[in-house]
Nucleic acid binder design. Structure first.
Length: 266
DNA sequence: ATGGTTGGCGACCAA
């Protein structure tokens, strides 16, 4: 099974890029964030035409929005909480009925958190911290197995998940309050599947700001997108690929897709 | 300390 996570930054604008991703990489499941489209306006026919017959999505006008596109049958989760009391379309869950057995899948778009890393003066940062805490508590009260968490977590937890660790310690996405909370969330029972393939001392990015003339030359990236799995799935991990070329596709998202291959389950 | 760019929408805000 080939799984992709991608913050597409407007699904309707980037349908041609979704098609390119699909034809070149042939994923079985794609998790999208920032679809920026209401459910009524979701491009259902175009997505089905790419081979994704099984869908679960939740969108709103202008902001946020998450979607799971699948070639494999799925059952949409109905027990996902309303985080921070806001129905703002940052999480969908589903059970994927894969050939070797079911896999639970969660697709998250964690709040970006604004610019000022102080929850007392920045409500967006307070929202971000509380969101991660609530999600952590939810998973802490479960015994997850055969579970995959993906998405744009908007936090780069490790020193080499950013281009300059020291300089970014005060920048939202890499501050200690965020990275500590992300670690706590992960420790509710998950393994960082991307770092399973790339050692922590190697740089690893999935996002490069639009605000760079030449993103490749400056290479001021961050790893904001993640794939976590429960330990029982680690033996099934077969390969990982950050599709860095997608940052140069026509009219690109500022995030690139991350691909994870799983061996058949038994 | 500041500016750099993009998307969505509607005459700015979020990232």
């Amino acid at each position: 099974m080939r799984l992709v996570t991608w913050n597409i930054n407007s699904l309707r604008l980037r349908m041609p890029l979704l098609e390119k991703l699909t034809t070149t990489l042939q994923p079985d499941v794609i998790c999208l964030q920032e679809t920026k489209v209401t459910d009524e306006l979701f491009p259902l026919d175009a997505v089905r035409a790419l081979g994704f017959e099984h869908l679960h999505y939740k969108g709103m006008k202008s902001y946020n929005g998450v979607a799971i596109l699948s070639r494999l049958p799925l059952s949409a989760a109905t027990d996902t909480p309303i985080w921070y009391g806001k129905e703002d379309c940052r999480h969908v869950g589903a059970t994927i009925h894969a050939p070797g057995g079911d896999i639970a899948l969660h697709d998250f778009y964690v709040p970006a958190g604004g610019d000022e890393p102080d929850p007392a003066i920045n409500p967006k940062f307070a929202h971000k911290l509380a969101f991660v805490e609530e999600v952590t508590n939810w998973f802490a009260h479960q015994k997850p197995n055969r579970t995959v968490l993906v998405g744009d977590f908007n936090i780069a937890p490790l020193e080499h998940d950013v281009w300059n660790h020291k300089q970014l310690l005060k920048i939202v996405s890499h501050t200690p309050p965020e990275t500590e909370r992300l670690t706590n969330w992960q420790q509710t029972g998950f393994v960082d599947a991307m770092r399973h393939f790339v050692p922590p001392q190697d740089k690893l990015y999935t996002w490069w700001s639009y605000r760079n003339r030449d993103w490749r030359k400056s290479n001021r990236g961050r790893r904001l997108d993640h794939i976590w799995v429960t330990p029982d799935l680690v033996p099934q991990l077969a390969g990982m690929n950050v599709v860095q070329d997608a940052r140069d596709w026509p009219s690109p998202s500022d995030h690139v897709p991350v691909v994870m291959d799983f061996l058949p389950l038994s």
